[in-house]
Nucleic acid binder design. Structure first.
Lengths: 199, 199, 199, 199
DNA sequence: GATGAATGAGATTTCATTCAT
DNA sequence: GATGAATGAAATCTCATTCAT
């Protein structure tokens, strides 16, 4: 028996719409985003978008949360297999940096989207606050690094902002590079970050 | 005697409109920008905006170029008084970082604007390409640093992206800090950058 | 089954909008034409006009072509039933004149519209050139008339311009006449034209 | 002593503005007419137009009356030197037709303007009614022609409309013709008109 | 649920007219 | 009188959202 008010069942369609939104924002920016274009790219009718998302704002909000979560999980999974806590700090740090960089390079659209969405009138206050609990893996590592006198004694907030800014910008650069050089380039970047933060 | 072919009689008005645009974009993002709101904030009639700028696109383009130029000049002036070429590399580097950071902290709106405008449908290709010639002061310094074996042997492009991303992100952080701590915090950041790049 | 790529579902609506445009232009001229007024008269929302016609220019262009086609077909059908080629030249000529005159009298709005639209900034060059192939019926008749030494030896272009100008102007006059006199008046006009052109 | 409320003294400027209006309407139609463009073409400032004409409507109205008057005078002067009344009807008729045709050929812009202005929202009712008293020369001639049994017994109104429509349309045609052929072509047209109207 | 035509509020842009210089 | 920047009402056009099918 299916409840008439149940959530729409076709979860693929919601995914298609979110993906289409990402591509559109990458191409034209948030200011150039129209629901009609999203629907066209997702191969659904305009009205269908409103079955899965209450409004344009809700759509953007949902994409924001989804992207944020995916980013965090990417870093988180960088420790696996095998618990991060047992690796030497430097190795774990480099793994995480590389995982995040690779994610950013492969997902340029996500980078653009997150950049656009901040300071836009669309993002709800709730979503802005929503801090991923998954960054915990990283802050734990930083704490350990400080304890072991390997890292400078800096606020988490500062370090996170540093990594955020650096990696995002440099991933954009690396994405333009030929595939062959890329691995080397990413390692270079990770080394840069370590040098910046090491005691 | 004013040239009959020049439209703007009052250069202040163009400035007012550009300034109003910056404030509006900071508040509502590029997607929330309306010419009516800009005009209201600049204390002119809607139509007046079109006397100074051909279209919304042209307005944004002009603001982009103006902001880019101002940013570059800020770094450039950091060497003065006294030619940068005679300072030790490390001192000159720190001066430039601090000058840029201070500019970014004081001009959060500009940071937001530049972030929004990239990947927007408004920016003309010409403006995107327009590279400030003023970054030369910085690249000269980097070259000197490499020659003196003080800096890592990295592409200018990579280093510029690194500084760009790091400083922008961290300036945003610093802007939220109480005025008292700020100076110290900015120095911390500049040190971070040096450590990242030093040989 | 309707092609997914075709926009107008309701062909009547396109017709309504075209008709409303004609009425508006008759009343206020092309210079007084506003899309809002057209929409109001056609009983649709302003936005709906843009579903059926890309722009104001496209709407006017479409109306121009439709009107031109209708005019040509009116003359063309004057020969039916029974092929024009078998009628005496004079009879066929008079039939065509009368048919065209009657059309013009009944469709004063079309006359006004065509007069306004020429030399307007709205008409595309393509549409201006688009010459109805249907005038062939008339030029065939003129050729036969010349062969039979019934008509003066004049360029088709000159004769067509003569009929065009004369009939349009006089139809406007006839339209103001009481219905009772009209038939007689139209015959008078057709006779005038024959006298002008006969050898 | 000059009255402060006197009419503007520079009559040339008024003429320039009227002439500029004519050219603009010929190029873009009445719907494409803007005061700014008129001013630009007349080499005056926008505001200056309003010194000589109360409003856009008044400007168009004035141009309408001026053009109408000029047209009538052209026909009128065709009889001179020497009173039309003493010439044979046919000769006088041809002279008038040719004079009018030549005027129309030389003044294509006036033809376009008059066509556009009819059925426009700009023309005042007063101006529409204003019938030139100068057409009297022509109607006198027509009356004489009828008395002498040279012309068909038709209403003046009908004949005037006939000539109006025919000559205007054919002048447009003749204007496109090389100068050399033109004289011959105009005679052809005048002959056509005579044949149409002769008894 | 899915569709896409229809809606109309609101955005951009134009332009007749005014007014300070 | 002459100028052209400034005005703001009104036009064109867009697009988030709704709704009949």
């Amino acid at each position: 028996m299916i409840n008439a008010r149940m959530k729409p069942r076709d979860e693929n369609k919601a995914r298609d719409i979110l993906a289409a939104t990402l591509v559109e924002v990458e191409a034209l920016g948030l200011a150039g985003l129209s629901i009609a274009a999203v629907a066209r790219r997702a191969n659904v009718a305009t009205g269908t978008v409103y079955i899965y998302f209450e409004s344009k704002e809700a759509l953007i909000d949902a994409l924001y949360l989804a992207t944020k979560k995916e980013m965090a999980e990417t870093i988180f999974r960088a420790g696996e297999p095998g618990p991060v806590e047992e690796l030497p700090v430097r190795v774990a740090f480099e793994r995480m940096c590389l995982a995040y960089l690779e994610y950013l390079v492969e997902n340029g659209a996500a980078v653009v989207f997150m950049g656009q969405v901040k300071n836009s009138p669309y993002l709800s206050e709730t979503s802005k606050r929503e801090t991923s609990t998954v960054t915990k893996a990283l802050t734990d590592l930083l704490a350990r690094g400080r304890r072991e006198r390997l890292l400078k004694d800096l606020d988490d907030e500062l370090v996170l902002a540093f990594l955020q800014g650096t990696l995002r910008e440099m991933a954009t650069l690396a994405a333009r590079e030929p595939r062959a050089n890329r691995k080397k380039r990413l390692r270079q970047i990770a080394a840069l970050c370590w040098d910046a933060l090491k005691a």
